[in-house]
Design a protein around this nucleic acid. Structure first.
Lengths: 340, 340
DNA sequence: GAGTCGACTGTAAGCGCTTACGGTAGGAGT
DNA sequence: ACTCCTACCGTAAGCGCTTACAGTCGACTC
């Protein structure tokens, strides 16, 4: 069959077949207006026979809504985002919206893509540093319900983030308990507000513990190779740090690889910790901070729904709690902290 | 701002502002017909001032296409699917299509959701055992370009899968080389055609090696807890198998946990292997089979594009090659097989 | 100076649906 | 027998765009 002649059955054909107007067919299909029992039966019969499905486009155009929403994220390669999206999709679909996704990573013109996306949805969730504040504001200015995930608030937009301060503090306290004194931080605070927050809290906690924090973070991207490379540099430079605090688990996994490659034992020669608790972290024995990723996505979907329904009118902020997960990469413990 | 009064600027307002017809505005915006330089300038100016973006709905309705395609997958929780989707999205977006996603896992009525999805896209990719053959056929029958991923072919539809036979054979050969004789298989062949293929090839290879294969697989779902539970049963039942061949890495990771919990050493007491080479596999030292996931998704997107362009007309089949990755979970080796 | 041509622009017919509004017919009420 | 409902159904006006077709109007040609 030639793609050119994709023929969908339209409401007109159904109407003609039954001998009624398209209005009546529409009423039957939508289940809205009143239709005589017998007429309804005949329409349904024809719908069945012709396999009629109303065109979403016609429907949306007439209704003035897409019945869809979108989510913008940096990348899907990490396990982190996948979980968030899943949480989002799950709820959104249950609420009757289709979900459009957009990964900005590596795109030449993310702003434009986001603007495009905005033309096909009723609301959107935007994660992290994917697009410029200007574009977000521009989208929001059209009245598009928008919620921000793991990104600093912009204007009056709803924002959901995860907790960073307390967990960083707790993490550092734990590390200090191991007796470590020389810390390095791997990750680029410019990359995301989460990293910024983690880094700041990390420094503050060190100061609070009477330790002089490192002068600057070792900037590196959010992936395993970048982490490995940065860790290599950090570990080669004397005095060797006793702990590598990594901006996320992927960086930490890279650091683990670097240590192994350099013949250093973790945690005996160097301790390594991360953030997110991705699946691999567990098998790598990585001490990290667990994020409620599914819930992050689900919250976004729920709020969007409420916005679209018009039931809420001022900006909401929520910070989801995180949890320190102690494994083996931060030092030897008398007792195992994590079961399984 | 009340969601009710979301006002988009329409082409009419632009036309009125400039004092031309909407046809002219459309020409300028699309860059198709001929428009006088001066007129073009004034239109663009107005477009800029009013922040006009054509409605995708109006556009799509007039053009007769959505400029979007969809992908249906069982679940996003595993790392496997996320990668496939990313490969798909990346290419599709570059080709100018938006991407709609649909996770069928846990949905009460996946078939209906897929039919819904079909009303909003120009083409779709369907992964694994997500929906019934009937529904796929029904969608395809409307002329919707469709490609199947990791799923047995249906009718004349394009199908991309990954290689299972050779890798299973190679895996078993390697295991036999270790001297193992008692094998168990964890996974449910009914779950996916990949599992079926792997299981069949596994049995055949054992027979080829002069070993009597297990009577039946230990059926379990595709996730870590299920794998753990099934492995526990398998390892508790004498004679204890020397090898647990797992349908995928998540099951294998569960098996690893079970072994650890039972105080068994891997690989000394029991060898464990999986499939997929998810990120965690590397850190768990799991011997597995690497799948070209990104490429799987990208291939689907490319084929869809070709179908939609009408440039291809008969069913395509492709089997992407996989690669055995030897790590430590299958037994002690004199030399490390994997760098890093 | 009439005819021709080309560059530009407007008119209008869709694309497939929803829904406000109005019309019709048959039964109830008196 | 005449009105008045009520239940049902059709008409038509959108929703916002694209594009075939039909002008219009100078500039040119002969």
């Amino acid at each position: 069959m030639n793609p050119q002649d994709r023929q969908h059955v339209t409401i007109y054909e159904v109407a003609q077949r039954v001998g009624v107007s398209i209005a009546t067919v529409s009423r039957v299909v939508r289940g809205h207006g009143e239709v005589a029992r017998e007429t309804r039966r005949r329409v349904l019969e024809a719908v069945e026979e012709l396999q009629f499905r109303p065109s979403r486009l016609g429907q949306s155009l007439a209704e003035g809504r897409h019945a869809a929403n979108g989510i913008v994220f940096p990348d899907l390669s990490g396990p982190y985002y996948a979980e968030v999206i899943l949480g989002y999709e799950e709820l959104a679909a249950d609420l009757g919206s289709s979900v459009l996704i957009l990964a900005t990573h590596g795109r030449t013109d993310p702003d434009r893509k986001v603007l495009d996306l905005a033309r096909r949805v009723d609301g959107m969730a935007i994660m992290g540093r994917t697009v410029s504040d200007g574009v977000v504001a521009q989208v929001a200015a059209t009245g598009m319900p928008t919620v921000l995930l793991g990104r600093p608030p912009i204007g009056e937009l709803d924002t959901v983030t995860t907790e960073n301060d307390a967990s960083a503090r707790e993490m550092v306290t734990h590390l200090l308990g191991h007796g470590y004194r020389r810390f390095a931080y791997l990750g680029d605070p410019a990359e995301s507000s989460d990293v910024t927050a983690r880094y700041d809290a990390f420094r503050a906690a060190l100061v609070g513990g009477g330790i002089r924090p490192p002068r600057a973070p070792l900037r590196c991207a959010f992936d395993v190779p970048a982490g490995q490379e940065a860790a290599q540099r950090a570990l080669a430079r004397p005095p060797r740090p006793q702990v590598l605090v990594c901006a996320n688990d992927e960086v930490a996994l890279g650091a683990l690889a670097a240590a192994q490659q350099m013949g250093l034992s973790v945690p005996d020669d160097v301790a390594i910790v991360g953030w997110d608790d991705v699946m691999a972290a567990r098998y790598a024995g990585l001490t990290t901070v667990r994020q409620p990723m599914r819930e992050l996505g689900a919250t976004a979907a729920r709020w969007l729904q409420e916005r679209m329904a018009g039931s809420r009118f001022h900006a909401r902020r929520e910070v989801l709690q995180t949890q320190l997960v102690i494994r083996t990469s931060c030092g030897r413990h008398s007792v195992d902290r994590e079961d399984s």
